[in-house]
Computed example of a mutant assay.
Amino acid sequence: MAIEKVREHFAQWDLQHRIQELSESSATVEMAAQALGCEPERIAKTLSFLVNDGAILIVAAGDAKIDNAKYKAIFGTKAKMIAKEDVNELIGHDVGGVCPFGVNKGVAIYLDVSLKRFTTVFPACGSSNSAIELRIDEFEAYTPYKEWIDVCKGWND
């Protein structure tokens, strides 16, 4: 089960106890915000894409949308999301629980600057009813990301 991989990931720092398993679904930004009692923009949504036949993840604020021109400038190709039925195989988590923790080897992870405006954010933890609240410095420390990028729009208009 994917949430167990995330628990193992956080156990490296003895933080697995901070994972919240919710009684209601957190599969979408709106559902997660309602279940956690926070603003939707503070949900750290993880989007999965194919780039040159490899899987990547981009973690962005809940109110951010991929800007195709910015995406192409960084990755050299159009944004192509992974098909729902292929997400688990390529990433290691099902849609609704995709997060940057405990993912398959070889998946490159990027953090979008839309997250930097918050003190804490809530990424999922491998299931459609889980999350963890992390300060941005903690999010950086516990996420095996490549770099911060700017590929989103709609959050700073």
Rank of each mutant, 00 (worst) to 15 (best):
E4H: 07
K5N: 14
R7I: 09
A11W: 00
Q12L: 15
L15P: 10
Q16N: 14
H17N: 15
L22V: 08
S23T: 12
S23V: 12
V29P: 09
V29A: 09
A33P: 03
Q34P: 00
Q34I: 06
A35D: 09
A35K: 08
L36T: 05
S48C: 13
L50K: 11
V51K: 13
V51W: 04
D53N: 12
I56E: 01
I58G: 00
V59Q: 01
A61W: 03
A61G: 14
G62T: 01
D63G: 00
A69D: 15
A69M: 12
A73I: 05
A73T: 13
G76R: 11
K80P: 06
M81A: 14
M81S: 13
M81E: 11
K84E: 15
D86F: 06
I91L: 13
H93Y: 06
G96S: 04
K105N: 09
K105Q: 11
V107C: 05
A108Q: 11
V113L: 04
K116W: 01
K116V: 01
P123T: 02
S128L: 11
N129S: 13
A131V: 00
E133S: 12
L134E: 01
E138N: 06
T143N: 09
P144H: 10
E147R: 13
W148E: 14
I149V: 15
G154T: 07
